[in-house]
Design a protein around this nucleic acid. Structure first.
Lengths: 164, 164
DNA sequence: TATTGTTATACTCTATAACTATA
DNA sequence: TATAGTTATAGAGTATAACAATA
């Protein structure tokens, strides 16, 4: 994982959030990101997937990047890391590379059937994490969180210059 | 295109967020955490602070942990890392350690005046990041995001605590 | 014997930049 | 000359576990 304030190691609050986080939206947002990862990674590991590999499968399925560099931009990864991720996915028969016909420098990547199937199983894990995250939320509250998070991501993504 | 995860009923009102994230709340939450860090760290660096040091100052100020291990639990850090962070803060005169009188194994940590002052400046940075994150939000929407994020953090924190 | 804080070591991870090939 | 992808390497960051002091 990249860009973390630290590896999660949980104990502490029973229902309550430390005031330092509750009082600071950026700290709160970052903490949620770390906790979600902490929650998801052991379960994804049962599918031999890291969070990064899961994100790559999801982007390949839903956003159909036209090149590896476009995939890198969406995932927020340096090109060299995308190579490593795709090497592993391809070696497991989950993704396929093929040269672009129009620009032979580019490599267009797609999921195999096996990749789509594994993504479906990983999405089931993700939904389980989401259910724990949104425990006690009404359907409207969950939709509201989704919408607000989407706008926040769009805002921060733009503020970062669209990169990463 | 499987992406059955939380197939959005309400589309995120922006094409700026890749569908893979918009369709998966855990990926969305993690992405926001990473983007917030990317946005904040260069600005905190101007105060010679990392995100982790900032979080430590904030917890020391607002949650008054009774020991280093309590601080470690709140920050989600391994004890050895807390030692390193406090060494640096203390060397800069921002925090102070003192032995607990009642239990001489424990070290209770507090901010100095300089630490409080630097925290105030870092909080100004944080508010700037929050403003960018919540650009276009009404006051009610910002409060709503804060409340929902707080509940989500409490939920995931509790879920991690049991499984770790 | 258990807990707190500390230290040192080994390991993982990532960024960097050089390199090939296409344009 | 510029861009896409690949590769190797050096450096930073982290967890692990052994250790000392106190309970």
């Amino acid at each position: 994982m990249s860009g973390s304030l630290g590896r999660m190691r949980t104990e502490v609050p029973t229902g309550a959030v430390p005031a330092a986080y509750a009082n600071r939206l950026p700290l709160l947002a970052h903490k949620l990101g770390m906790l979600v990862l902490k929650l998801a990674e052991p379960r994804l590991a049962e599918l031999d997937l890291t969070g990064r590999h899961y994100a790559a499968l999801a982007v390949l399925a839903d956003d159909r990047p036209g090149s590896q560099s476009e995939l890198a931009g969406t995932l927020g990864l340096v090109p060299g890391l995308v190579v490593a991720v795709l090497d592993e996915l391809e070696a497991r028969g989950l993704a396929e590379r093929r040269r672009s016909a129009t620009d032979r420098r580019r490599t267009v990547v797609g999921l195999t059937d096996a990749g789509s199937e594994l993504l479906a199983r990983a999405d089931a894990v993700s939904r389980g994490v989401e259910d724990e995250l949104a425990r006690g939320f009404s359907a409207e509250e969950r939709d509201e969180l989704r919408a607000l998070l989407g706008r926040a991501v769009a805002n921060t993504w733009a503020a970062c210059g669209g990169a990463d």
